[in-house]
């Protein structure tokens, strides 16, 4: 995959704009946008992680919200037991998501097609109900939690620092995904999507490759969960509701499936649009639903996908 000059420039400009957001909106006395954009960037990470398996691997996971929940519960539960060290929480968020993704993936990847969609959904439902029954940690009421503590100069209580931390993670995740997709491993994953039988015939143990991709994707989404818990200072089983999984899928689609950076754009488009439209009418889903249908019908390649492509690939 290669980026066209246009897309490289857009990414660079986008980055500069994001960096400029906190000082700019503070100057304009519109600090609400710091929180809003922070949340959008978190979902951008979630959508990006989903696109690795969905857009490139062709694994339609309808349960990606599970890792959002797992990552956030890593913060909530550890903080509840007064372990507020951010590094440790982050490690548990990533590690925990990886382990669960490994188990879920090992079971789900035995199936394919619609079965895969439904079983990933069922697995997330399972975790959702576990979350509800965790009475010690608030159950359905959720658990208010404090922000993670890093070294003294990273004080997450400061909205700016939290914003830049999230931005940093977003850039890091984009970089990792970029390297991953363009690596040999990424080629195999994309190959499995194109023609799995052929990949097997060539001699690749596709199951293992796909499982690894599933685990990487899950743990990356775990990072998003970690950040979401920090932003909202709250963890709840609701993060794992199946509607949430659907929304992350929509972000991927809006941006453009299998375009790597498209889902990041998609998260911005989806959440900002939702924010604007819900300000007009409380019945906004009546408009949003049909728009989604239209988008699927007529703009399959998504916002990012509409941009000119480079000859070497679909980046």
């Amino acid at each position: 995959m290669e980026l066209t000059r246009l897309k490289s420039w857009l990414l660079a400009i986008g980055f500069v704009v994001l960096v400029a957001v906190p000082p700019l909106v503070t100057a304009l006395d519109e600090t609400f946008y710091i929180t809003l954009i922070s949340r959008v960037m978190i979902f951008a990470i979630a959508a990006l992680s989903l696109d690795i398996i969905l857009g490139f691997g062709g694994m339609i996971s309808f349960g990606h919200a599970a890792y959002l929940g797992l990552g956030s519960y890593a913060v909530g539960i550890l903080a509840f037991h007064e372990i507020t060290n951010g590094w440790l929480q982050l490690f548990v968020a990533i590690g925990g998501s990886a382990v669960v993704a490994f188990i879920i993936g090992a079971i789900c990847l035995r199936t394919s097609g619609i079965y895969f969609i439904m079983i990933t959904l069922a697995m997330t439902q399972l975790l959702f109900f576990i979350g509800i029954s965790l009475e010690t940690y608030g159950g359905d009421d959720g658990l208010p939690t404090d922000r993670s503590e890093f070294a003294a100069f990273i004080d997450l209580g400061n909205e700016w620092i939290l914003f830049y931390l999230i931005l940093g993670f977003l850039v890091l995740c984009m970089y990792i995904s970029w390297r991953l997709i363009n690596s040999r491993f990424g080629m195999v994953i994309r190959g499995c999507h194109e023609n799995e039988a052929r990949m097997q015939a060539i001699g690749f143990p596709t199951y293992r490759y796909k499982l690894l991709a599933f685990v990487i994707s899950g743990s990356m989404c775990g990072i998003a969960g970690f950040l979401l818990a920090n932003l909202t200072e709250f963890v709840t089983p609701e993060f794992m509701h199946w509607f949430r999984s659907g929304e992350i899928m929509i972000m991927v689609l809006v941006g453009g499936m299998g375009t790597l950076f498209g889902p990041v754009v998609g998260a911005f488009a989806f959440l900002l649009f939702e924010e604007i439209i819900s300000g007009f009418t409380e019945n906004w889903p009546v408009i949003f639903g049909p728009l989604l249908v239209l988008l699927v019908l007529f703009a399959k390649q998504g916002v990012w996908g509409l941009l000119p492509k480079s000859k070497a690939g679909d980046g």
């Binding site: 339609i60 969609i117 949003f288 639903g289 989604l292 249908v293 699927v296």
Partner: peptide
Amino acid sequence: MDQVLATFGLIL
């Protein structure tokens, strides 16, 4: 995937 999303829109 497309069918899932379009019909998800219908649910909304």
